[in-house]
């Protein structure tokens, strides 16, 4: 059984490292700072409009490497399968990972598979590690935001979370919104080429834009002020949030990023982003201020101001 599964991955991922059938892969890295990240993926449902858990795992890992300003090169992947998980579904996930890896320009060079008893897992869990290299001098970090910096967002928020919610059995609604899951390596390469001194780069995944902005404010010990009108949210995402009592700011994204740069660099960065397919709707949404309390504030459409807080736990639909 395990051998069958291994064959399936070797065939799908198709690269010289895997074909050697070693328990590890020996790789050469170009000059620069080596970047490494690891991530676990659990998602329900496993397949959703615009993607599936496999695509999510590859893109998520690629993006975590890219958020260091690096070009992602190699991935490893470990699969925890629940006994009885349909091989057909697994093949679909493997194919989709292979396609995502090709798009992102990375190779999945080593991996592992374990099968657990039925009931001990939820179909399939995927753990991935990614390795990449950042050009010398490029070192964005969440603790590097400075007062005066411009906050740039790459596109509309909430698509991924809403696409997944729409498929949940008990919530089911019809929407044309699909997951925004995408590899952001090309976009980041273009950004780094235009503005090497990007202070902060983050992808607002779980917890949404609200969590990411709060993390940055907290780690950099600054305040952030964003303008509600400048943050793009698709009509259907807004409507889904209205129906379920959620806030788009807390909804997960899988193909968006937030960049903080010196105000003088903002236009150049936004121009470079808009030339890329995953940065077409890039815009400045706010700026950094000095604030010991590390608050993230939003200028509302009413001209008032409110705080944007971290959300406690996963956003749950509410009736009141």
């Amino acid at each position: 059984m395990t051998q069958l599964i291994d064959e399936l991955f070797v065939a799908a991922f198709d690269n010289p490292w895997l074909s050697q059938r070693n328990d590890q892969a020996a790789i050469e890295l170009p000059e620069g700072r080596t970047v490494i990240t690891t991530d676990g993926f659990v998602v329900s449902p496993l397949f959703f409009p615009g993607g599936d858990i496999g695509m999510l795992a590859v893109n998520g890992t690629v993006n975590d490497v890219a958020m260091a300003g690096a070009r992602p090169l190699y991935l490893s992947a470990a699969f925890i399968l629940e006994e009885g998980f349909p091989l057909g579904d697994l093949a679909r996930i493997a194919e989709s990972m292979a396609a995502a890896a090709r798009t992102a320009g990375v190779a999945i060079v080593t991996g592992d598979t374990k099968v657990v008893q039925r009931g001990s897992g939820d179909g399939v869990f995927i753990a991935t590690t990614g390795v990449g290299v950042a050009p010398p001098g490029v070192a964005p970090s969440a603790d590097s935001a400075r007062p005066g910096d411009a906050v740039v967002l790459s596109g509309p928020i909430g698509d991924h979370g809403v696409a997944v919610l729409a498929q949940r059995e008990a919530l089911r609604f019809e929407t044309t919104v699909t997951s925004d899951t995408a590899p952001l390596a090309e976009l980041v390469a273009a950004m780094v080429a235009a503005v090497p001194d990007i202070h902060v780069l983050r992808d607002p995944t779980r917890g949404g834009l609200a969590a990411t902005l709060n993390e940055i404010a907290d780690q950099s010990a600054v305040g952030i002020v964003v303008d509600e009108r400048a943050i793009p949210v698709r009509g259907e995402v807004r409507a889904a949030c209205e129906l379920l009592g959620l806030d788009p700011l807390n909804i997960a994204n899988e193909g968006r990023l937030v960049a903080l740069v010196a105000a003088a660099d903002a236009d150049r960065l936004v121009d470079a982003m808009r030339g890329q397919p995953h940065g077409r709707d890039a815009a400045v949404i706010g700026h950094v201020i000095a604030d010991d309390r590390r608050f993230v504030q939003m200028r509302t459409t009413f001209g008032g101001s409110r705080l944007i807080d971290w959300l406690a736990g996963e956003p749950l639909p509410r009736i009141c």
Binding site: R172, F173, T175, T176, V177, G235, E236, A239, E242
Partner: peptide, 17 residues
């Protein structure tokens, strides 16, 4: 948008339920 028996399909800003 549509009525079938005791159920209806409704539209809110492009999403349907």
């Amino acid at each position: 948008i549509e009525i079938s028996g005791e159920d209806a399909l409704v539209d809110l800003g492009g999403i349907r339920k």
